[in-house]
Amino acid sequence: MSLELNDTLQTLVDGLTENFSDKLIEVYQSSGDTFVRVEADSILEISKYLKKKQHFVFLCDVFGNDRYTSDERFEVVYNLMNLRTQTRVFIKVRVEEENPTLESVSSVWKAAGWNEREVYDMFGVRFENHPDLRRIFMPEDFEYFPMRKEFPLLGIPGSIELPNTTPDTE
């Protein structure tokens, strides 16, 4: 499939090919958006490069994805925006099910802090060098990762405590 890239995206793809040729896995387009998949261990370097040299200064969102495959089960997607040309690109990395760990990009974009906490909360992907990696939505003593495919829709009964319904005086 031929890619329809505007100038910003063409510069991006050329820049990545030139500087990170061994880290770049694929570039594809779908529904009018451009996706770039890179090696998981290079995400911090590539993030710094994209922000400093390509002006992708705005991190709109970070989200996880459970592909439910035996290898490289989890995917983390970074939604980036170039505010000079209003161009959006999605950067994807994949991690293994066993001990999923990524380098945090919160040192590059501060906005990544809470988004990475959400990915950790929902999928259990750990982010190294994150300033405050705690659960963000679920109770802190919750033992599961609810957005993983094997987690039942209605949750695990009794895994989250309900309040005591007997008043203290009785």
């Binding site: 939505f137 679920m138 609810p146 987690f151 039942p152 829709l153 209605l154 949750g155 695990i156 989250i160 309900l162 309040p163 319904t165």
Partner: peptide
């Protein structure tokens, strides 16, 4: 909201 985070009816605790 038939999901893990929402109490399925407040009569579970009230």
């Amino acid at each position: 909201h038939r999901c893990y985070g929402v109490v399925q009816g407040v009569d579970n605790f009230l």
